[in-house]
């Protein structure tokens, strides 16, 4: 069917009034589960601290000014962002070929590979991270393998380092970059790449000038997902990071749960959320430029 819809259909569609109450359940959920908790955290972050009550009577900006002026906190912020960035880039580099292959293959092994890809999601996060704890420890599989290969002669510290956290996060979040990319790459007409080849471009040229630009939406979606998840991840850095690999999420939980500092912890959380948001805003602007020509 082509051409404009017939007038009959158009007028009937126009006469139908929007059913506003259908969005109510979603709206209520949104308010209850997203807006209210956020509001309560924001309010909490402006409360005065107290050791004689959960929080003091008055309101203050102190938690924010302390955090912003604290190089120790900024160090952890930087470590968190750096970890998120590395995890994002590495998962993209590892995940893209897998997604590309999955999108194009007609092999019956594709479903096996697909299950392989989502397998990290089939086991609970704590269990997976515990497995990494065993692998990365000084006497663990990783060090033994390196020793056996003759690359090291004494164990290198992997556990309780940012590297350990990065490795754990890459494993956990790889599916989150592959799945959006897979959807995106599957939607790209395979004949477009063939057209590139037929016009005389090599595989690489075709990839760089045709497939890659067209897969930008998938790259954008996947990388934002992984970046945000990495930055806010708690279990993995808490279990694998120790103090060297401590991220903002771990610090926030420490404030809230270990030290019972609700106002300061809330301020820390909002502070990190603001930083994450600005990083994503910049990233969106940059990627939007790369995607402005896409349909």
């Amino acid at each position: 069917m082509t051409g404009a819809p017939s007038p009959a259909i158009a007028s009937r569609g126009g006469a139908q009034r929007p059913v506003w109450w259908l969005i109510l359940p979603a709206l209520v959920l949104l308010v209850c589960f997203l807006v209210l908790p956020y509001v309560s955290i924001v309010v909490m972050s402006f409360r005065e601290a107290s050791t004689r009550a959960v929080y003091g009577d008055g309101f203050t900006l102190e938690h924010y000014t302390t955090v912003i002026a604290d190089p120790f906190i900024w160090g952890i912020v930087w470590r968190t962002l750096r970890t998120g960035l590395i995890v994002t880039v590495v998962t993209l580099l590892l995940g893209y070929p897998v997604a590309y292959h999955l999108a194009r293959t007609r092999s019956r092994w594709a479903s096996v590979l697909y299950i392989f890809v989502i397998s990290p999601l089939l086991v609970g996060l704590v269990v997976r991270t515990f497995a990494w704890l065993i692998i990365l420890s000084n006497g663990g599989v990783a060090n033994n393998a390196l020793k056996w290969a003759g690359l090291i002669d004494r164990p290198i510290q992997l556990l309780n380092t940012p590297l350990g956290v990065t490795i754990g996060l890459i494993h956990v979040f790889l599916p989150f970059v592959i799945l959006p990319l897979l959807g995106n790459l599957q939607a790209i007409n395979p004949e477009v790449a063939m057209a590139g080849r037929s016009l005389g471009a090599s595989r690489l040229q075709t990839f760089l000038r045709v497939t890659l630009p067209l897969s930008m939406p998938g790259i954008q979606a996947g990388s934002i997902l992984v970046f945000v998840l990495s930055i806010s991840a708690y279990v993995t850095p808490a279990m694998l990071g120790g103090s060297q690999g401590r991220t903002m999420a771990v610090l926030v939980v420490q404030y809230l749960v270990d030290s019972f500092r609700w106002p300061a912890g809330a301020a820390l959380a909002i502070f990190m959320a603001a930083i994450t948001l600005s990083v994503i805003a910049v990233y969106l602007r940059l990627t939007a430029r790369a995607m402005r020509r896409l349909p």
Binding site: E191, V192, S198, L214, P295
Partner: peptide, 11 residues
């Protein structure tokens, strides 16, 4: 080559 889907580069 001209493809059934035309395969023009959409971007």
């Amino acid at each position: 080559m001209v493809f059934q889907s035309y395969a023009l580069f959409p971007h």
